[in-house]
Design a protein around this nucleic acid. Structure first.
Lengths: 152, 152
DNA sequence: TTATCTGCAAAGCCTTTGCACTTAG
DNA sequence: CTAAGTGCAAAGGCTTTGCAGATAA
């Protein structure tokens, strides 16, 4: 399954970059959530994970979820009055652009929170989100400095 | 301020319909949150409310927030790893587009939360946001039904 | 060996709830 | 008068954290 392999590579790089270590328990949890077709709460993931490795504790599940969220492989969903749940973010291609109206500079930005809302927004309308385009138009810091000439 | 008056009418109707009662404490809390320019956490609202009526307890703040959420006058925001906060939903009008990749249908969607995040996103990068474009691409419910070819 | 990883259980945080009293209708 | 509203403090539910032992590099 290519998407998952790619995700595992991303994770590996993240772990290596941060000087963290690999572990089989973590891998079990990662695979459990990445192969899930639906979002899972921490408890549900914990239950699922235990089927593979009964010795895993829920603290590790939480720690792994946080790790995955940090490297962008999982995102947290919160529905009204519900326990938060987590869903894998696989081959989805997401980023937006920040465009300076003065100098035309274009900067790529990505933001999990924004994505999350977009996905939710689509879902609320019954759509399956496949991709999005987000363009933010404004004045970049450099031009502000030149222009405003009075604030930072 | 017309928007707030309208909100108070909505609330009154909600209360009357449900056979609930009016109370000055509740009104204080409602006014505090509806006139807030930014979203507030329960604690922040509690603090604000206390300036008007020191005898209000935080439990009532929570109860009132829930009431307002139920009648659609306030919505909950949850940013990653942050305490939930609440923002008034008044006459705001913001929108992006939901575009169906199959049939091309374009639907306007509006969402304050998304806009707020966009503004935040721009800010994080040092930009002053002036406008934005948000297009979400996916498959609309109708096309999903047709395609699946085995449902509908 | 050293820093990270883990399970466990305790601690934390935010929110809800039970109770007795107050108050609107 | 009756049912809803409220403050207070206790109870809950979900997450995080301290610790000591296990483990990757």
């Amino acid at each position: 399954m290519r998407l998952i392999e790619r995700a595992l590579i991303i994770l590996k790089e993240y772990i290596d970059n941060k000087g963290l270590k690999h572990s089989s328990k973590r891998l079990t949890i990662v695979e459990s959530i990445l192969t899930s077709k639906k979002h899972l709460t921490a408890e549900e993931l914990y239950t699922k994970v235990k089927k593979t490795d009964k010795s895993i504790g829920i603290a590790t599940v939480y720690r792994t979820i946080k790790l995955l969220a940090d490297c962008g492989l999982v995102r947290e969903l919160r529905f009204k009055d519900e326990t938060p749940s987590y869903e894998p973010v696989l081959g989805q291609y997401h980023h937006g652009h920040l465009v300076c109206l003065k100098c035309g500079e274009i900067k790529e930005v990505s933001d999990t929170k924004t994505e999350e809302l977009q996905s939710k927004l689509a879902k609320e309308n019954g759509y399956d989100l496949q991709s999005y385009r987000l363009d933010l138009f404004g004045i970049c810091p450099k031009c502000k400095a030149k222009d405003g000439a009075r604030h930072e």
